[in-house]
Computed example of a mutant assay.
Amino acid sequence: MAKRRLVQRNTEAEAGLWGNAGLALLKGVAGWLTGSTALLADAFRSGAEAAQCGAAAIGVRGAKRLPRREAEPGGDDGAVQASNLVVALLTLVVGIEIGISAVRHTAEGLPAAPQWPALAVIAAAWAIKAAFFSVGGGRLETYALAVVLAGTAGAWLGGRLGQPSLLYLDSAAAFFVAVLVTLQGYRLIAAAMPGGKPA
């Protein structure tokens, strides 16, 4: 029973790793081509989630090498704890960098409106995540995608209607994603410390 549970967790973690990595690539390319800062920020968030799923997969593999009574992902393996801490620090740094980039983008002047394909990519990413794999994200995924969609759509609409104030919504959405990623990184660091509770 324990072995079967470990195999299932390993499968879920690997699905989350490759699925989030694919979404990060899709969002990153689309964000760059369409000029959506929010979509680029969400690409980095998906990349951080992929790294977290990768660390979870390492934890499961480490648990397979432990005796049955200790066979829990992330058990006492020092390498697993180290990988979890590295991923947590990486997530925190990514969140801070996204926030700095969003503020810098806003400070440079009136941003350009993102192109409409960004909206289609966000909706497609949401549908893919919901339909094919659910590892990583949860409510964080829902909040982030909802804000990214609203911010990108608002900025695109601002460009169409000639409303300059709406153009800042894209960068505002990127900053919101940065806050979410930074908080997640902080929670992961707390959980990775000895005696910490899972995030």
Rank of each mutant, 00 (worst) to 15 (best):
residue 72 E to F: 15
residue 170 D to V: 01
residue 35 G to I: 04
residue 183 L to H: 12
residue 66 L to D: 13
residue 135 V to K: 08
residue 117 P to G: 07
residue 144 A to C: 11
residue 177 V to F: 06
residue 68 R to L: 15
residue 43 A to F: 09
residue 67 P to A: 11
residue 57 A to T: 08
residue 24 A to V: 00
residue 38 A to D: 07
residue 84 N to C: 09
residue 61 R to M: 11
residue 141 E to K: 05
residue 81 Q to S: 14
residue 178 A to E: 06
residue 146 A to T: 14
residue 153 A to P: 00
residue 178 A to N: 08
residue 153 A to F: 10
residue 48 A to I: 02
residue 192 A to P: 06
residue 43 A to V: 08
residue 148 V to Y: 06
residue 16 G to M: 04
residue 21 A to W: 09
residue 50 A to T: 01
residue 135 V to C: 07
residue 169 L to I: 00
residue 38 A to F: 02
residue 178 A to S: 15
residue 147 V to R: 06
residue 133 F to H: 07
residue 46 S to E: 01
residue 21 A to Q: 00
residue 103 V to T: 09
residue 146 A to F: 14
residue 199 A to L: 08
residue 187 R to I: 00
residue 21 A to L: 15
residue 199 A to C: 11
residue 123 A to S: 10
residue 98 I to S: 06
residue 15 A to P: 03
residue 4 R to L: 08
residue 188 L to N: 08
residue 101 S to H: 12
residue 86 V to W: 09
residue 73 P to W: 11
residue 7 V to W: 13
residue 13 A to S: 14
residue 57 A to Y: 01
residue 174 A to N: 06
residue 106 T to K: 12
residue 4 R to V: 02
residue 150 A to D: 01
residue 3 K to W: 00
residue 122 I to V: 14
residue 98 I to L: 05
residue 74 G to D: 09
residue 89 L to S: 06
residue 69 R to W: 11
residue 84 N to Q: 13
residue 167 L to V: 01
residue 131 A to T: 12
residue 152 T to M: 11
residue 49 E to N: 11
residue 172 A to K: 01
residue 131 A to R: 12
residue 157 L to I: 08
residue 77 D to P: 01
residue 105 H to E: 13
residue 168 Y to L: 04
residue 176 F to D: 06
residue 118 A to P: 05
residue 90 L to R: 01
residue 5 R to P: 02
residue 178 A to G: 14
residue 138 G to D: 07
residue 37 T to S: 11
residue 163 Q to W: 15
residue 29 V to C: 10
residue 163 Q to E: 14
residue 100 I to P: 02
residue 20 N to G: 05
residue 142 T to W: 15
residue 163 Q to N: 13
residue 19 G to F: 09
residue 186 Y to Q: 02
residue 33 L to H: 09
residue 33 L to E: 09
residue 44 F to K: 05
residue 194 P to F: 11
residue 66 L to H: 15
residue 47 G to S: 11
residue 109 G to P: 10
residue 110 L to Y: 05
residue 9 R to V: 08
residue 131 A to K: 12
